[in-house]
């Protein structure tokens, strides 16, 4: 339905400034929630780009994409070590009101691939920028991902490469090998951090 798509695109673009204000508020709030927590590499929020929103909105499961797509505003916290993820979870869930938590990892124990914590939080009324209430069908939730540097190091480039058409078998094998290497490095780095924890750094 080209006309419906065009209307949806216009509506999404029209609300981007409000979504961007919300993203900025959430980034500030996340920094506040994680104040004093060590080993945080970065915290960031972004508004979904229009093309990506339109692609997702094409999924027939979304009957009201402007409300139902939950990562229109999404954030990411990247930690140094795996053990830091639980610390971040505890801080974040004492600050934000969550409605969903999923630990994403390959189902099969012999597979290596995408790993990340995904949270869905309700957008609190006091975070909504001025003008939000005047719009209809605004999103009610946002997404937050928590992962380590090595989880991220694999996830981001493979998102670019892995989703391309015609990825041949050898490329898939190479991606799996990189995932396994990242997983191993992540665990080893965590072990080293544990070993040296409590020792004074110069």
């Amino acid at each position: 339905m080209p006309n419906a798509d065009a209307t949806l695109r216009v509506e999404f673009n029209a609300r981007r400034p409000l979504l961007q204000q919300l993203a900025a508020t959430l980034e500030e709030k996340t920094r506040e929630a994680l104040e004093g927590v060590s080993h945080i590499d970065r915290i960031g929020f972004r508004v979904k780009d229009t093309e990506s929103f339109m692609t997702k909105a094409g999924d027939p499961k979304y009957t009201s994409p402007l409300t139902q797509i939950e990562d229109q505003v999404a954030g990411r916290v990247i930690t140094f070590f795996r053990d830091d993820i639980q610390i971040v979870r505890d801080q974040i869930t004492s600050y934000f009101r969550g409605v969903e938590h999923e630990v994403k990892e390959p189902e099969n124990a012999t597979e290596f691939g995408y790993e990340s914590d995904h949270y869905i939080f309700v957008i609190a009324e006091h975070w909504k920028p001025e003008g939000w209430a005047e719009e209809s069908e605004m999103p009610v939730t946002v997404e937050l991902q928590i992962r380590t540097l090595f989880m991220h190091a694999w996830a981001e480039p493979q998102h670019d490469i892995g989703y391309k058409a015609n990825v041949d078998r050898i490329t898939q094998r190479e991606l799996a090998w990189i995932a396994a290497s990242a997983w191993g490095a992540d665990h080893k780095l965590n072990e080293l951090a544990d070993r040296f924890a409590g020792q004074d750094s110069d």
């Binding site: 709030k29 506040e32 929630a33 104040e35 004492s94 600050y95 934000f96 009101r97 309700v122 609190a124 009324e125 006091h126």
Partner: peptide, 12 residues
Amino acid sequence: AQMQMSDVEGTQ
């Protein structure tokens, strides 16, 4: 239910 502003956020 919980108030939308958490005690942590409110205190800060």
